[in-house]
């Protein structure tokens, strides 16, 4: 169950995020959103341009991926399935979903507030939401910037995440 857990010693994970053009990113985001929730006929996805590198510090425990997986299995897998492939017609796949790996603002907002039938998970603590978000952005074949509790708090407060991009990126330090 979702008891509050003690987090092991934190380590600063250094993440490198790709910096694509903002326009391309927005198109990818919009397409991802449609794929994820809402429009039945998604439009062609436009790949973001090849990226420069941007480095952002995130504050996550060393075993964030494993912790994230545990929380994912508890809170998400009933619908989105443990392989992240979702259920067609009911719950969108998270694996390979550009909305999931896109700029984190979108997915964090969705987790906090729910959307299109998906319940809100704003009741979970920021640390757990950070682990879940980071996990789904890096599980399966996904690769994207992980997210820490401060970033969750920022979105919770209604503010924009101060990231230029947040698109595809190298997987940071610890992990699979």
């Amino acid at each position: 169950m979702t008891n509050h857990r003690k987090h092991p010693i934190r380590r600063r994970a250094r993440a490198v995020i790709g910096r694509g053009s903002l326009a391309a990113l927005l198109v990818a985001l919009a397409a991802g959103l449609m794929l994820a929730y809402g429009a039945a006929e998604a439009e062609d996805t436009v790949e973001p341009e090849p990226a420069e590198q941007e480095t952002v510090d995130v504050d996550l425990p060393e075993d964030w991926f494993e912790q994230g997986e545990t929380l994912y299995l508890q809170n998400c897998s009933a619908c989105h399935q443990s392989a992240g492939d979702g259920i067609p017609g009911a719950f969108p796949a998270l694996a390979g979903n550009p909305f999931v790996t896109g700029h984190p603002q979108g997915i964090v907002h969705l987790l906090l507030n729910g959307r299109a039938g998906m319940p809100a998970f704003g009741g979970l603590p920021d640390e757990e939401l950070a682990l879940i978000t980071s996990y789904v952005r890096n599980a399966w074949e996904n690769e994207a910037h992980p997210v820490d509790a401060d970033m969750i708090a920022t979105v919770r407060d209604g503010d924009e995440l101060d990231l230029e991009s947040g698109g595809p990126m190298e997987r940071p330090g610890a992990g699979q």
Binding site: Y37, G38, A39, A40, E41, G89, A90, N113, G114, R115, A116, G117, M118, P119, A120
Partner: peptide, 28 residues
């Protein structure tokens, strides 16, 4: 049809309407 189901059915509902439908969440 519950909105959780309806929002996945292709329709001629206006974009404003579809957007409004997406604002709802459903209880687990």
């Amino acid at each position: 049809i519950p909105l959780s189901v309806l929002n996945q059915i292709p329709s001629d509902l206006s974009p404003e309407f579809s957007q409004a439908m997406n604002q709802v969440t459903y209880a687990s």
